[in-house]
Computed example of a mutant assay.
Amino acid sequence: MKVIDAGKTLIGKTRYVFGGGRSQSDINAGRFDCSSFVRWAFEQVGVNVGPMSGVTTDTLKTQGQAINPKDMKPGDMVFFDTYKIDGHVGIYVGDNQFLGCQGKTGVAIASMAKGTYFGERFNGRVKRF
């Protein structure tokens, strides 16, 4: 899936900064938060999910087509209830894993299997472009 391949190019090259990724200088320096990373990855494959300065989990959750979690496919956006409802977003890669920009790792693949941090916070919201 092209959006996943694009996102994977940033693994090990970023750090998580809440509110980061909303300027070209942040992007050049590898500073992203979860929603700005998702916006960047989709932009790389020609999908506009909103302006660089204004994309948040709250704007992303209104985009795309709602998908039943049992029908998730790689490339779908997945949402998690962290510090708030829909406080974190990533891109599903398959096998109960997603690609996202997280606090301790920056852009990385994380587990959303039952019993894991994100697995316990996955709220069932899945969106597809």
Score class of each variant (00 low, 15 high):
107 V>G: 06
91 I>A: 01
107 V>S: 08
109 I>E: 11
92 Y>Q: 07
84 K>P: 04
77 M>G: 07
75 G>C: 09
99 L>K: 09
103 G>S: 13
90 G>D: 06
92 Y>D: 11
106 G>W: 09
82 T>E: 02
97 Q>L: 11
91 I>T: 01
88 H>W: 04
98 F>T: 01
82 T>V: 03
80 F>K: 00
93 V>W: 03
100 G>Q: 10
76 D>E: 04
83 Y>T: 11
89 V>S: 04
108 A>S: 15
81 D>N: 15
91 I>M: 00
85 I>A: 15
109 I>P: 11
106 G>I: 07
82 T>S: 00
89 V>L: 04
97 Q>W: 05
95 D>M: 00
98 F>G: 03
110 A>W: 06
81 D>M: 15
78 V>E: 04
92 Y>H: 09
80 F>L: 06
90 G>V: 00
106 G>N: 08
88 H>A: 03
83 Y>N: 11
110 A>E: 15
104 K>T: 13
80 F>W: 02
105 T>R: 13
107 V>W: 10
89 V>M: 05
97 Q>H: 14
110 A>T: 14
110 A>M: 12
79 F>K: 08
88 H>M: 01
86 D>F: 08
80 F>Y: 08
92 Y>T: 05
100 G>K: 02
100 G>I: 03
84 K>Q: 15
90 G>F: 02
107 V>C: 07
78 V>T: 00
108 A>Y: 10
90 G>R: 06
102 Q>Y: 08
86 D>H: 15
91 I>H: 02
84 K>L: 12
86 D>R: 08
96 N>H: 13
108 A>C: 15
83 Y>P: 01
77 M>Q: 04
99 L>Y: 08
79 F>P: 09
95 D>K: 14
106 G>E: 07
94 G>Q: 03
93 V>E: 08
91 I>P: 00
92 Y>S: 05
78 V>F: 00
100 G>E: 08
75 G>W: 14
87 G>L: 14
87 G>W: 11
81 D>L: 13
108 A>N: 14
106 G>M: 05
103 G>I: 08
82 T>R: 00
101 C>H: 10
89 V>D: 07
100 G>H: 15
99 L>T: 09
103 G>R: 11
106 G>P: 09
84 K>C: 10
104 K>A: 12
80 F>G: 03
102 Q>H: 12
102 Q>K: 12
87 G>V: 11
103 G>P: 12
109 I>H: 12
105 T>F: 10
97 Q>N: 15
91 I>K: 02
101 C>L: 07
75 G>R: 12
83 Y>A: 04
90 G>K: 01
105 T>D: 11
89 V>I: 04
81 D>H: 11
101 C>Y: 08
92 Y>M: 10
80 F>P: 04
91 I>S: 01
83 Y>C: 00
